[in-house]
């Protein structure tokens, strides 16, 4: 090789390397550039917190794009089960009652995260083994308007008190919150998940006081905010938010016990981006998401994260036992019986 061709080859190689270098570096830094994860969403502030504390940091670090499509968890589950060969989502967010059907249909896969990540999750909130990452715990509590209801309420069955005639609002059994107070009434009356007659008996007593039963959280919120309803059973986090907004709503852990569900995020079987799914779940568990959720909704964290003192002070109290005090629920049986409960509820509350 003569000097001229040596210089020419070297300079061309250097130029090519210089041009390619940023791309190589970018490819290393942004390993999910061009990848989009589709996830159903809960909408509202829950999705906002997810976007800010999970999706955005991930996109900044890895180039991974996350798209949330708000819908009800049940509708998302139905869509996934209906199209097993071409699932509409890479990850599904749903609640405890939805999980047995997803597992039974083979629509979700275990999370397969390392022990360093899984080890951070509080063991008692993992109801389905390796399936699903529990993001939050929401319980059904008794709430009432402190300015309109003079004598405090302490239990779900107190909603049958004569002074509340026409002023009680609750979920129906279409909403998972309805299933929670329903099980609480059943077990408090001596029944169980296999025998829910005591729950229907209690509901017959509460019925004259009911102004509306609804499947919609927003609708129930509206009923309390407009003072159409003075008392009822509602999500602890929603009552916490109303209190923060200055509404005189009481948040009472019911005497029947704390019945709660977990919100899970699970990898959908057949996702084309398993590595991106794993990265998303790791960011969710190890990033600021759990803290931010506690800050806004007052939810007790599902991981062993140390909350900042101001957040820790405002978290919804679950009593001395904390998350351990939550009642265990057999969700497999709930999933099997729910259709029948719905039909009977519709007949009896009509």
């Amino acid at each position: 090789m003569d000097r001229r061709s040596f210089l020419k080859t070297t300079s061309l190689t250097l130029a090519a390397a210089t041009l390619a270098a940023p791309n190589i570096l970018r490819a290393q830094a942004k390993r999910f550039e061009g990848v989009t994860l589709n996830i159903n969403g809960y909408g509202g502030d829950y999705d906002r917190i997810l976007k800010e504390s999970v999706a955005k940091p991930l996109e900044d670090q890895t180039g991974l794009r996350v798209v949330y499509t708000p819908s009800t968890a049940s509708a998302a589950v139905a869509r996934i089960i209906a199209s097993p060969d071409n699932p509409p989502f890479d990850l599904v967010m749903c609640d405890s009652p939805n999980m047995p059907d997803l597992i039974k249909a083979g629509a979700i896969t275990p999370t397969n995260l390392g022990p360093d990540v899984i080890g951070r999750i509080v063991p008692s909130v993992r109801e389905f083994g390796d399936y699903g990452i529990p993001m939050s715990v929401a319980s059904m509590i008794v709430t009432y308007n402190k300015t309109l209801v003079k004598s405090p309420l302490t239990s779900f069955i107190d909603l049958a008190r004569p002074d509340l005639e026409g002023r009680v609002a609750m979920f129906n059994l279409e909403n998972s919150g309805g299933v929670l107070y329903f099980l609480a009434l059943a077990e408090a009356g001596g029944g169980n998940v296999d025998n829910v007659d005591p729950a229907f008996e209690a509901l017959r007593k509460i019925k004259p006081n009911i102004t509306a039963v609804t499947p919609s959280t927003v609708n129930l919120l509206q009923l309390f905010e407009q003072e159409e309803a003075w008392a009822g059973a509602f999500w602890d986090g929603r009552v916490f938010s109303m209190q923060k907004a200055g509404k005189p709503m009481a948040l009472v852990p019911p005497k029947e016990g704390l019945y709660a569900l977990r919100s899970y995020v699970s990898p959908v079987k057949g996702t084309k981006h398993p590595d991106a799914v794993k990265a998303y779940l790791e960011q969710l568990v190890t990033g600021p998401f759990i803290t931010e959720l506690s800050r806004f909704f007052g939810y007790v964290p599902t991981t062993n994260i140390q909350l900042p003192p101001d957040v820790a002070a405002s978290v919804i109290p679950y009593g001395k036992g904390g998350l351990e005090s939550l009642r265990a629920i057999n969700w497999e049986k709930v999933a099997a019986y729910r259709g029948d409960w719905l039909s009977r509820f519709n007949r009896e509350m009509r």
């Binding site: 089960i81 519709n346 009509r350």
Partner: peptide
């Protein structure tokens, strides 16, 4: 579903409940 307050049942809402919620 939203305005009936549980007192009004129509077949559309019952179909929705069975398909989407109960997965029946």
């Amino acid at each position: 579903r939203l305005v009936g307050g549980g007192n009004v049942q129509m077949l559309g809402s019952i179909i929705y409940e069975q398909v989407i919620v109960a997965l029946n």
